[in-house]
Write a protein that binds this DNA or RNA. Sequence first.
RNA 1: GCGGGUGUAGCUCAGUCGGUUAGAGCGCCAGAUUGUGGCUCUGGAGGUCGCCGGUUCGAUCCCGGUCACUCGCCCCA
Length: 418
Amino acid sequence: MARLQPVRGTHDILPEDGRRFRHIVETFRDIAERYGMAEIATPVFEFTEVFKRSLGETTDVVMKEMYTFEDRSGDLITLRPEYTAGIVRAFISGGMHQNLPCKFYAWGPMFRHERPQKGRLRQFHQLDVEVLGAAEPTADIEVLALAWDLLSALGLADKVTLELNSLGDADSRATYRAALVDYFSAHKDRLSRDSLDRLERNPLRILDSKDEGDRAIIASAPLLTDYLNPDSAAFFDAVRAGLDALGIPYTVNPRLVRGLDYYTHTAFEFTTEALGAQGTVLAGGRYDGLVEQLGGPPTPGIGWASGIERLAMLVDDPAPARRPIAVVPLGEAAEREALVLCHRLRRDGFVVDMAYRGNLGKRMKRANKVNARAAVILGDDELTRDAATVRDLDSGEQREVAMADIAAALAPYRQQVA
RNA sequence: GCGGGUGUAGCUCAGUCGGUUAGAGCGCCAGAUUGUGGCUCUGGAGGUCGCCGGUUCGAUCCCGGUCACUCGCCCCA
């Protein structure tokens, strides 16, 4: 260690970033609650088994990216690399299937041991939404609408495109997968190395290979859409009709496949050009088999997650901070008086800043630096009259106000923002 | 995990074809101005030139390694 650095791929959220971060989270909570979602918080670590069983043994996340360790009682523990598994586990262990559907939202840190890049960290934060116990396409539509509302509220509507696909139900997906394996196996000699690997582990992923040679082969590969059975096709139609009705723009991308094993039916990604290789800003889909796979009662589910740091890179301005009132005492008697005044004003809902030391000039400088909207100057003169000087720091105008009337005199500055 | 680029003050960046005290702007501190901030002027603090090693009389500069960041791949939010 010795080096005074944050661990690779982690970073501090300093106050300026913090405001932006908080703005995103607050916008998210507000909108999620409008959709009747309830906040849930699950532990940052779980038994390793929870992630292995839900994500799939052969997933990259499980194979090479998990922070896994043995704790002091010998249990195998993993820092959560994503939210869904933990929430589904909580759903099962909390016996919440009695009261369906469950609509959850959550946010917090995630951990993945990847090579860091812009927009890709080892500790990062996600917003997350999960709806459990709803098999209807209406749930898909609602969950997508929530995502769209959030991105719009953050001012990202035109920086982002929604790509949509359907993987079909388990049957459709299995037949399609078999067809794909047949097709690609026939072209094995021309496939890239990476894709040969994918052929073993997750053949669907070959479809969004960036390799040029692969692309030529992919061009005439069987299309997922042709393998959707009637139920799956009808489901996908219903989702699209819903989005159309709500005026939510999207493009169908038949090559969109998600990396994790548990997805069925709807799969989607909101992507942007603005973040280089890490263009996915919000992504998710339906996972009808997951709850059962984790040992719960058969329960359909759908959800998404979004990277807060990635959103933060796209959001224009941090939410403005409230401008404080600066209290400026002169002399010991005034100092005592000022302390009481600060207290009173804060209890009254004002943001108040008082320097700990310095003469009038110093303190006024500080008032300016903290972007105070107004200053209350308390000196001997004023004290003898039981009054203070209230100075508007934008206009430079000031007047003397009786102590009893200070709060009223400051009222116009109460909610001023930068 | 694989390949490329970068690393000089708190921040943004100059610079040294290898040579003695390494610079600027912004920011910070102080003074001009002991009861009035912003503007201006003056002064000041702040650097193991990422770290370790090598070559050399001499390395911030060249070489190797390492760490961090960054771009692309893999994968993903």
